[in-house]
Design a protein around this nucleic acid. Sequence first.
DNA 1: AATGAATGAGTTTTCATTCAT
DNA 2: GATGAATGAAAACTCATTCAT
Lengths: 207, 207, 207, 207
Amino acid sequence: MPKVSDAYKEKKRADILRHALACFGEKGFQTATIDDIALRSGMSKGAIYGYFESKEEMYIRLMESGTEEMFRMLRNDFAGLPAVDKLRTLIRHYRNQELTSEWVGAGRVHMEFWIHSARNEDVKRVMVGRYERFVALVEEIVEEGKREGVFGDVNAREMSDLFWAAADGIFLRITVLDRQELYEKLWDDAEEMFLRTLSRNGDGAAL
Amino acid sequence: MPKVSDAYKEKKRADILRHALACFGEKGFQTATIDDIALRSGMSKGAIYGYFESKEEMYIRLMESGTEEMFRMLRNDFAGLPAVDKLRTLIRHYRNQELTSEWVGAGRVHMEFWIHSARNEDVKRVMVGRYERFVALVEEIVEEGKREGVFGDVNAREMSDLFWAAADGIFLRITVLDRQELYEKLWDDAEEMFLRTLSRNGDGAAL
Amino acid sequence: MPKVSDAYKEKKRADILRHALACFGEKGFQTATIDDIALRSGMSKGAIYGYFESKEEMYIRLMESGTEEMFRMLRNDFAGLPAVDKLRTLIRHYRNQELTSEWVGAGRVHMEFWIHSARNEDVKRVMVGRYERFVALVEEIVEEGKREGVFGDVNAREMSDLFWAAADGIFLRITVLDRQELYEKLWDDAEEMFLRTLSRNGDGAAL
Amino acid sequence: MPKVSDAYKEKKRADILRHALACFGEKGFQTATIDDIALRSGMSKGAIYGYFESKEEMYIRLMESGTEEMFRMLRNDFAGLPAVDKLRTLIRHYRNQELTSEWVGAGRVHMEFWIHSARNEDVKRVMVGRYERFVALVEEIVEEGKREGVFGDVNAREMSDLFWAAADGIFLRITVLDRQELYEKLWDDAEEMFLRTLSRNGDGAAL
DNA sequence: AATGAATGAGTTTTCATTCAT
DNA sequence: GATGAATGAAAACTCATTCAT
């Protein structure tokens, strides 16, 4: 007979995660303390432990979160578009992102996820699972483009891996340099490079 | 024991740094303790502090180190080569790297450098300075290729930025996935993609 | 346990300070460790840090404490008395103090305050401020005595300085020798000497 | 068959002590490190341990030192003087001392001796022994004055104790406040007060 | 004798987690 | 359910002392 509804609890959990993300983005996972998160959430330390078992759990949940929402949104924007435009939409979704301190902070946390993954099997499982979905997304777009006859005979999986490598590389850089115009140029150049590379004949006709 | 040569001290410092790099690679900068480093170095904690003022200093020295050596080596290998081959040499230098645990560990530390940089001005200065040299290296190669008439009319600086973004993205991935064959494929694809993109007319004639 | 009253917290703080004073008295500020204080307080080290930011802060608070209480008490005892009796009251307040180990310990800490003050500007400010109040106290008594026509034409400020110098000298000695009868004799002699010196004509008529 | 003469060793010991005194004066016994002393002495840490068994020993030797010299000097200056002038000579010896940083530093160390004495029986023995000689010095002067008929019927021992209490109180204060003119005034007032108190009839006729 | 690198016990301080209220 | 005081295991760093050279 819980005193509060599940919805309330879910909302609280999401609340805490949001504040935790801000803290981790600002100070890093190790450096941000539960006190920081409690303070920012306007809750007590004890309350937080009522929703999450440990700091590590908050971290894991954060890694899992966000993906669904993002995919839902993209699926919507992609509806009915040819492969080239889907890829463009994806790229411009990132390219047009304003480098607010929240977003850059979240980017830093994302980078930390990768590092942290390398050293912890549990975290790695989650992270790789998440990553798989992103790779599959672009892989499917590329396959679709090939079927449409617009993309050449490339290895879709490898191209997707390389695409996300470049994307993470851009995020990594911007995480430190924090320069909007550099960020946009990098994505513009990446867009052109990838579309040209994927194009049938490699001549960028698809552009 | 005292009144040891400068060479001895230099060797010790390098020794400690090597062991520290291994510890940081394994556990991460924050998680690795001075005790870990001391244990692995076979020295006492106090001895470590005789060579480095703080854990942070070891970190900074580690960031600075390696770069010179790498540049010297590349300069040697580059001697007399046309731009395209210089770029290929650089890419293959990475591509042919065997993913030993030491190397992957070092890669993880390199990734941490970026993250850490984002939150610490001192570290950032060193990191950005170091990064500048890498960007300049590829930028010069691209300019050279343009002068040779092999590369098209691209923005050398931006292409260099993008190149290193992709490189760091590959490292980031491999840091977690640790799969040799994926690593090689990513570099092979990157090589082709960049050379094609840089080529005059973008048709990859330079390949 | 949480959501305790402010009074509870104040009491805890005072508790810790009391135990800290005992530890400092016994071993000295530098030698007494937080562990000592925690052990004696029956609390954990962490709990101590919940009330004080650092050992230094405990020290400063200890320096500030006690003064108010003492002044309130004296003001009470002084009410309505002529200057000579005020001075006598003050002197006898000290003279009749039993040399318990706590009191002697506190005296030792007081002496350490002086030494420590000499080498630390922050501590010095607090210590000099505190000292000022004591000097003003006796200075006022002397001025009052002069107005009453009982004390001669002495420099009140200087006499007050000298009085407290002698007092501290007595404490310093007793801190080591810890002999009750010597302590009392020193104060008796000091009483006579000062009253005689202050007396109009210097003939001790005021006695 | 020592390779160096005893005189050389003695000189070295004195040298080290001199520098140690400066270090202790500046930073305090606990805070000053052997490295500080070694640096200031221009010797190695190891060499210092060839002359002193421990930091504590240096401290003890320092406590013992200086006294002889001082007594020899005073005995010289006292030769043939009546008691009143001996006392005056003693007081003015202090009063005319310029407050150089070395002298103030030495004063601080002297204060530390007292504090330290309170907590260590070995140190206490040395300190009390040293103190005894100072008390005896003034006690004898007072007795002499009584025999000369210039001083009244006071308890010589107690007056001597009180005299040194006041002296130490003045040093304690100056150790922190470090104000030459205050120092001199305190001694001038002390001189007048003590001579008046000691004078036959207490009327300061001896002045 | 002198040197100064090495040792390691000891110190302050932090912080994830627990749990009495 | 919420609170935040309490815990205590680390962790970074210091420094008197030793001892190989």
